[in-house]
Design a protein around this nucleic acid. Structure first.
Length: 450
DNA sequence: TCATCTCGCACGTTTGAACCGG
DNA sequence: ACCGGTTCAAACGTGCGAGATG
């Protein structure tokens, strides 16, 4: 026996799902050129995963937007697709560290993003139930832009500030254990702690790309990937309202900083008693300055002065403790579950994963009429069914030139269950008027719903 | 001038190889 | 030769703050 993570440890990166949108009417034309660099001209625009989930009707391929996402209520949300017979209808997911997330969301969760990629904290940690123990599944995470606005920290609160920027290249993070059996996923909570966010649109490491000062909603997908009993196909997507966050390059809300320091073990050094605490840092700086002075002095008159006295460990007075800023209004998140929501508060859409990112065939918000992507002919190199150890071959050959390839290296798994062809293609995302409508959904520039 | 971003720093945690004894 | 426990160093993950950028 072997552990799935040993087989597919290379799948821990993130993968582009769609090409960057062409400039459309809803976007500032001035920003259009920057996306040329992220266009994948050879990307298969055919329905994603069609061969992966052949039994699903096209009508079931739409992944509805997260209900209540303030992308513009004027657009009627399409009805949720009927549950797929291929994915157990009882699939449920709960957020393991929901309490921690709620702590953060009560003050407005901020996530640091860097060029090199920064982990999320709190991390996404979920429990899944209701899977077929013997069927194979992939677990993915992506982030949805929320709010259609850029935000700024003003007067100790977040305010909408202009239109959101063009969406960055879309990527998903595939859990390193994927694909694994339902039993594996249900055995213990699934952590996405290795997921990283970056603001580098040319990121070569496969991290999820986001814009700074924007709001996002993480989304977890469970995708059936076949198995010994032939189960496979279908997708269940889950979102947790408390996991919405704002991206920043430096923390704005000191309460968030404090919460992170208190909760994140990696930031332990910044706690009050840590060597990196404010007190210690200031003491260090003072010692350093003093030492420099001493060196200078020694250099000037070595023999005239005694050894440098660096006994400057006396406690530096703490900065005047400012009272914590008032809390943001309680989150008035509109991201509430709709009918069919599981008791955990997550929404589940059991559907064809081809619709990860929008309505197939729907007008693209990025393209002018007549710019619809067309489905290319099926790849002649596609194998079906695949050899047991050839999961990589399930990816479209057109992905060879994409940045996912570096993350697919590694030894071949010694054995694996046969999977149906694994094909992604791109569909327009997000649907028209959802993301980039004016920030009027925040009357009076209310703080974002966090 | 201002808001935002980048980078280097110091410190703590994690991870895995090396070592040791049973 | 194998196994389990310990040690240690390198890699990695943090927030901070100064300086750069637009």
């Amino acid at each position: 026996m072997y552990h799935p993570s040993e087989m597919f440890s290379q799948y821990g990166g993130s993968y582009p799902l769609r090409p960057p949108p062409p400039p459309g009417a809803g976007y500032p034309q001035s920003q259009a050129p920057q996306y040329e660099a992220f266009r994948y001209p050879d990307i298969d625009a055919a329905p994603k995963l069609d061969s992966f989930f052949p039994s699903l009707e096209p009508s079931g391929r739409l992944l509805p937007p997260a209900p209540g996402l303030p992308y513009g209520s004027s657009q009627a949300l399409p009805p949720g697709p009927p549950p797929s017979a291929r994915l157990p209808s009882g699939v449920r997911m709960s957020l393991e560290n929901g309490e921690l997330w709620k702590k953060f969301s009560s003050v407005g969760t901020e996530m640091i993003i860097t060029k090199a990629g920064r982990r999320m904290f709190p991390q996404l940690k979920v429990s899944v139930t209701g899977l077929d123990p013997e069927a194979k599944y992939l677990l993915l995470v992506d982030v949805l832009p929320v709010g259609g606005s850029r935000y700024k920290w003003h007067s100790k609160r977040w305010e909408a500030s202009g239109k959101a920027e063009l969406p960055p290249p879309d990527r998903v993070y595939i859990h390193p254990d994927s694909p694994a059996s339902g039993a594996h996923w249900m055995r213990q909570p699934v952590s996405f702690h290795r997921l990283k966010l970056t603001n580098n649109t040319l990121d070569p490491h496969g991290h999820l790309i986001v814009h700074s000062m924007h709001r996002y909603q993480p989304r977890v997908h469970v995708i059936g990937a076949g198995g010994r009993r032939g189960a496979g196909g279908g997708c269940a997507s889950f979102t947790f309202p408390e996991t919405q966050f704002l991206t920043v390059t430096a923390y704005q809300n000191p309460q968030i900083t404090q919460l992170k320091i208190e909760s994140n073990p990696f930031a332990k050094g910044f706690r009050e008693n840590g060597m990196n605490s404010k007190r210690e840092r200031e003491a260090r700086i003072k010692r350093k300055i003093k030492a420099n002075e001493c060196e200078t002095d020694v250099g000037e008159s070595e023999s005239k002065k005694g050894p440098c006295d660096s006994t400057l460990t006396e406690e530096m007075p703490l900065d005047h403790q400012q009272p914590p800023p008032p809390l943001l209004p309680h989150p008035s998140c509109s991201f509430y579950p709709t009918a069919g929501t599981n008791p955990s508060g997550a929404e589940a859409y059991v559907q064809h994963p081809a619709a990860f990112h929008g309505l197939q065939g729907a007008p693209s918000p990025y393209s002018s009429p007549g710019q619809e992507m067309t489905a290319p002919p099926p790849s002649p190199t596609a194998k079906s069914p695949l050899e047991p150890s050839d999961f990589r071959a399930m990816l479209p050959t057109s992905w060879n030139s994409l940045d996912i390839i570096p993350f697919l290296g590694g030894p071949e798994p010694p054995d694996a269950s046969p999977f149906p062809p694994f094909k992604f293609s791109f569909t327009p995302y997000p649907p028209t008027a959802r993301v980039y409508g004016p920030p009027t959904s925040y009357p009076g520039s209310q703080p974002p719903m966090l």
